[in-house]
């Protein structure tokens, strides 16, 4: 890891009746894309709102560039960017007026503003919509405009809260291409997402659940931590196949993904042979294959085990 520019220590945030964030500690290195993954209600949004100085925590310390932002939020304001999950620009202002407002309150000069606006409109592919009111943009365009408004003052750290939720797949890919480019320019990105494919694009991923961080590592190490191997098969009738497999001693877990059944086993090659035997004559086995473990399988294992892999818990 590069030298950490965000250091969270034992962060606790309480809402009436709920502990939304329950003592998390994270270090984020400069130039990373840090992914915060987890189900709804895990505490991702709350964590990001604390990091962006919008919310004050109950306990714990958060340092950005070594400044304690809980005690002194102004020390980082103007240098960090925040993009909320909910569209929060002015709907009655046009694309250009929104950009201009952000440029002005961050004190950009007229020349800087003109240059950056042109660049960002191109960057976000919004050149043809400059006079459209933000409320009439599509979901994907709204998110790109929100990102553009955040980028106009060139923050060095960007906090993005589920930036692609509710956005179509094409726009999602486009959006991540933009994030990758930002990273190559040296911007540190802290992204929360419910999507596993997006988590795979991050340099470090923290899996959050119930206000706690269950695991925090690179996607590769997380996948490597998965103790089993994966076998995927399709069989007819599926429910019958599932019933039989559920009773087999060498299958640790079985999940249904549409037509496919995903099995967690200790040794895949051996399991394939035994499955062919055990299922023959009872169901029609259409296909069977060995798969690489994904982040999703690793996380599902973690959730099911409750406490996670030893040594990985933070």
């Amino acid at each position: 890891m590069h030298k950490p520019i965000i250091e969270i220590e034992n962060l606790i945030v309480d809402f009436p009746g709920v502990r939304a964030v329950d003592g998390i500690s994270i270090k984020v290195g400069e130039g990373e894309i840090f992914g915060l993954v987890g189900p709804d209600g895990a505490g991702k949004t709350t964590t990001i709102r604390v990091l962006s100085t919008i919310l004050k925590p109950a306990l714990g310390s958060v340092k950005i560039w070594g400044n304690d932002i809980v005690l002194n939020p102004r020390s980082v304001r103007g240098k960090i960017g925040y993009m909320s999950q909910k569209f929060n620009l002015y709907g009655d202002l046009t694309v250009e007026e929104n950009l201009r407002f952000f440029a002005d309150i961050y004190g950009l000069s007229d020349d800087e503003r003109a240059k950056r606006t042109k660049e960002l409109l191109h960057f976000a592919r919004l050149e043809n919509f400059t006079d459209r009111r933000a409320e009439f943009l599509s979901g994907g365009m709204k998110q790109k405009l929100a990102l553009a408004c955040t980028l106009i003052y060139e923050p060095k750290i960007l906090f993005l809260d589920e930036p692609t939720t509710g956005v179509d797949p094409v726009s999602r890919r486009e959006f991540w291409a933009i994030l990758s480019e930002l990273r190559s320019r040296g911007v540190t990105l802290f992204v929360s997402t419910p999507y596993m494919d997006e988590a795979e694009r991050c340099s470090t991923v923290a899996f959050m659940d119930g206000g706690k961080i269950r695991i925090c590592d690179s996607p590769r190490s997380i996948k490597a931590s998965f103790s089993g191997e994966i076998v995927e098969l399709t069989a007819k009738p599926q429910h019958e196949a599932r019933r039989i497999i559920g009773g087999l001693s060498y299958v640790r877990d079985v999940e249904v993904y549409g037509e496919r059944l995903q099995l967690t086993v200790a040794r895949a090659a051996e399991a394939v042979e035994r499955l062919k035997q055990d299922l023959s004559g009872k169901v029609e086995l259409a296909s069977v294959a060995i798969k690489n473990p994904t982040m999703e399988s690793a996380f599902i294992e973690l959730i099911k085990e409750g406490t996670g892999v030893q040594g990985m818990i933070i």
């Binding site: 919008i54 304001r77 103007g78 925040y82 929060n88 002015y90 309150i105 408004c149």
Partner: peptide, 13 residues
Amino acid sequence: ERGTLENLIISPV
């Protein structure tokens, strides 16, 4: 209500 105040909170305003 619209969340736009958050943008102002983190700005130098």
